[in-house]
Design a protein around this nucleic acid. Sequence first.
DNA 1: CATGAATGAGTGTTCATTCAT
DNA 2: TATGAATGAACACTCATTCAT
Lengths: 222, 222, 222, 222
Amino acid sequence: MASQKRSGARKDQILKAAEKVFAEKGFHEATISEVAREAGLSDATIYEYFSTKEELLFSIPVETTEKGMETLNFHLNYIRGASNKVRSIVYHYLSFYQNHPEYASVVMLILKQNRKFLDTEAYRIIREGFRVITRVVEEGVASREFRSDANPFLVRSVLLGTIEHLVIRRLLLGQPEDLMSLVDPLTDMIIQGIQKDEGPKGWHLRLVLDRDEGEPTGEVSD
Amino acid sequence: MASQKRSGARKDQILKAAEKVFAEKGFHEATISEVAREAGLSDATIYEYFSTKEELLFSIPVETTEKGMETLNFHLNYIRGASNKVRSIVYHYLSFYQNHPEYASVVMLILKQNRKFLDTEAYRIIREGFRVITRVVEEGVASREFRSDANPFLVRSVLLGTIEHLVIRRLLLGQPEDLMSLVDPLTDMIIQGIQKDEGPKGWHLRLVLDRDEGEPTGEVSD
Amino acid sequence: MASQKRSGARKDQILKAAEKVFAEKGFHEATISEVAREAGLSDATIYEYFSTKEELLFSIPVETTEKGMETLNFHLNYIRGASNKVRSIVYHYLSFYQNHPEYASVVMLILKQNRKFLDTEAYRIIREGFRVITRVVEEGVASREFRSDANPFLVRSVLLGTIEHLVIRRLLLGQPEDLMSLVDPLTDMIIQGIQKDEGPKGWHLRLVLDRDEGEPTGEVSD
Amino acid sequence: MASQKRSGARKDQILKAAEKVFAEKGFHEATISEVAREAGLSDATIYEYFSTKEELLFSIPVETTEKGMETLNFHLNYIRGASNKVRSIVYHYLSFYQNHPEYASVVMLILKQNRKFLDTEAYRIIREGFRVITRVVEEGVASREFRSDANPFLVRSVLLGTIEHLVIRRLLLGQPEDLMSLVDPLTDMIIQGIQKDEGPKGWHLRLVLDRDEGEPTGEVSD
DNA sequence: CATGAATGAGTGTTCATTCAT
DNA sequence: TATGAATGAACACTCATTCAT
């Protein structure tokens, strides 16, 4: 077990180094030598733990993804209501990528467009995360919280697509610096849409109370 | 003019070949020799027209992007109403990427995550396209078609992010095969949201209380 | 004849350009394109006049060398005495290289160590120049102006070697800037090295009068 | 130390191979592959020891030059009298180049006319060798062994230039096969050119008249 | 006479990967 | 377990040279 533990630590050490180097320079532009140097090891040692450069790349998200999924599911258990869960999901992803930019770089700029990555264990887990989203939407439809014609696949695509887009933008352009302030607007937009409530056939009374955000705090329309 | 024309044709021929090869194999995995073979030319000839493999890559979207922007703007002139314009934009992008999968591959899987591409002329034009979206949203807000709190940047991010996500998914997984059928659902979702329209014919009383995250904590409806 | 003349002018124009470019960048580092650009012609035109880059190189010294030999021989005819002729030769070479640094570069830094150049027409002429020197020394020996054991080959080697060394040094290091001031010192050194020891057992009277140089103007020793 | 030793041996092995190949084919005409083959190694291995073909070239004379200087200085310590030292220097250089024709080729035909080589460590040492010569001449002047007007720079140029000329001639034309037989003639010629007129056995009267160029126009002796 | 266009042939250099120690 | 040393396999890029027009 001791050796196993040491082994695991070495592996993590290498993975951390790889994550950093790949994030900074890209996969093809980075060399095993650089990863080795960053890890304080020799090139050959890297190959004691990972059989190819690509395997090293694909190993980066394995553990992180697993833990992330656990965390997300853990939280979702505490939350009732599809809308709330949607928000929780948005929060989860944005917060994670915001706080782990190197990991975000590897996933968003390198792995996401790699065909081979799709056959990977890590991707299997990521896909599970996708299904969680779909399920939440289905849940919302079933509970009549969402419109009956809400398309779970589409909602999921909107949600993930927007998050990816924002994260990539932040990675490449440095903007928006603070992704977290977009959690609520994005959640709201997905849930409410942007169309003005017309209420042509009756009158609507909507009362919304907000504390922190600059969201409309009160609104009355007929 | 003849030589200019011939030159231009050669260039296009090479760009077409490069687009195809890069789309199929990725940028780093593709070789100049393959591009040359695809174009029916010698390696050296490629370098007569593009000084670098990277320059060749960055040249691929130049003309297409220009034309695309022209087309989009042309169409938008014919359309009245922000919602309709949003739909037109969604249609434009999805339709273009659906019909030009190789171009889509190059842009979505190669260029979009290339830092150097951001300094490119082609990207400048792409960015203009982004601003068109923002402007349409602002227009919708100004015309009271959209909520006054609609965040143009966020809407644009949702729109582009979702499109990118769908296109990439289609490229990598082959699904959804038909992006066009998502034009309306996506447009609607962005415009209307997914929340259930509560009692369009009576009156609504919505009371939303936010604590930390602004999630609706209570809700009363008739 | 007109066309012949035009042809010759073109050729000279190209040779001048080549001399300049080769002198500046060296033979291998220079490209035909650069020569063409310098000549204000297209690459292909260069090949209308010279069949290969190497032939172009080897053609540079042909005319110059011919004229140089003519000039040297012309002057030598006016000069009596081997010593005087030696000086004239030293003067001729140093002066020519000093005044034609680009030509000097090509000859000294490129051609002189090219094995193939030895089989060249231009080299044949250069070799004739060598024989002139040898002959002058032989002449000096025959006229008892030089020691009977003066080795013409060695004298020639000293003369040419020193000149080459000085010229190359000037080309690469910029020093000595003025080669001409070395004409007399060098000549004297060589001459005194081979000059006949006049009457070692009788008595010598040496009186030297100089005008321009700071050479010893009078010297009497017992 | 073992690894250091092995490393050093490899390096020498490569340098030896490079010296041979470059000597035979010239720098540009030779390929790294040929050097590698000659060394019994792969191309890539060459680059483990030398980062560039040019660096490999410039590394060839480093050690040899150092040792050569040591040897020369060592011998000079044993020799008294400037004339004798001059002879020793001539002997040293001619003997060395004669016995190391490949090294001679690299230095005389490749390096000597390379501008970048001048900024090299090896050249620094070579330059030291030059200064040794100058110093010996100065020594000879100070000791009244040489004429007071002997120009150390010129003597050095004559010495080196002649040696270079002879060595190059031998390399390219195979002649003269035996450089060593020229040691004494060359030394004598130089020495007599700068030797102080001793006139121990009588007195000399020399009358020299110069007109324009300082050449002796008339001469009366005994 | 001049050249635009094309290319064959070549080469320096890189780097992931292996393996004996 | 760790690595120094070695390399096979590639590849982008260059340039002298050709030839139809």
